[in-house]
């Protein structure tokens, strides 16, 4: 199975689960951030624990990946830029009631306003490319 087809499949699975558990529901994201409904904290927390346990058991395998490579885990380093980026991201998350993954599920669910959030994320990414031209450390 080619990598693209595989990711199409896993993406479909991811989008379906995000939608079924309510991660693409504006009310649940808003409810989490005003501290009224913490279901999504439970979702993210459970996902982290399951992913951690899964990664730990993968690390112990003789064959860590299907093709026998050892794991190459992508890691991002922290700079003062990334701190301000994280805060900007958080403000957008609370404002739009979506993140870059869940907005795609919202789009599939037929929510028209997701089109504008999505256009915004694309524009914001372009803005980053413009800023990085002037500030390569970004």
């Amino acid at each position: 199975m080619s990598k693209n087809i595989g990711f199409l499949f896993f993406g479909t699975f991811f989008g379906f689960v995000l939608s079924r558990v309510g991660a693409s529901d504006f009310n649940l994201i808003y409810g989490m951030f005003i501290g009224e409904n913490l279901k999504l904290v439970g979702v993210i927390g459970t996902a982290i624990i399951v992913a951690y346990v899964g990664m730990q058991s993968l690390r112990k395998q003789a064959k860590q990946t299907r093709t026998g490579q050892s794991l190459e885990i992508s890691k991002k380093k922290l700079t003062s830029w990334s701190l301000s980026g994280a805060l900007i991201f958080g403000l957008g998350w609370g404002m739009a009631g979506a993140c870059p993954g869940t907005v795609l599920a919202q789009l599939g669910e037929g929510k028209i306003f997701a089109v504008f959030t999505l256009a915004g994320i694309t524009f914001g990414t372009y803005l980053y490319a413009l800023l990085k031209e002037k500030q390569p450390n970004l």
């Binding site: 993140c99 694309t122 980053y128």
Partner: peptide, 25 residues
């Protein structure tokens, strides 16, 4: 929603990832 999205896009790139890449992975 466009403004919110712009902040998500710009912020994610500067922070080096989003909810899935940073918070979960």
């Amino acid at each position: 929603f466009f403004i919110g999205g712009s902040m998500l896009g710009l912020g994610a790139r500067i922070a080096g990832g989003c909810t899935s890449g940073h918070s979960i992975h």
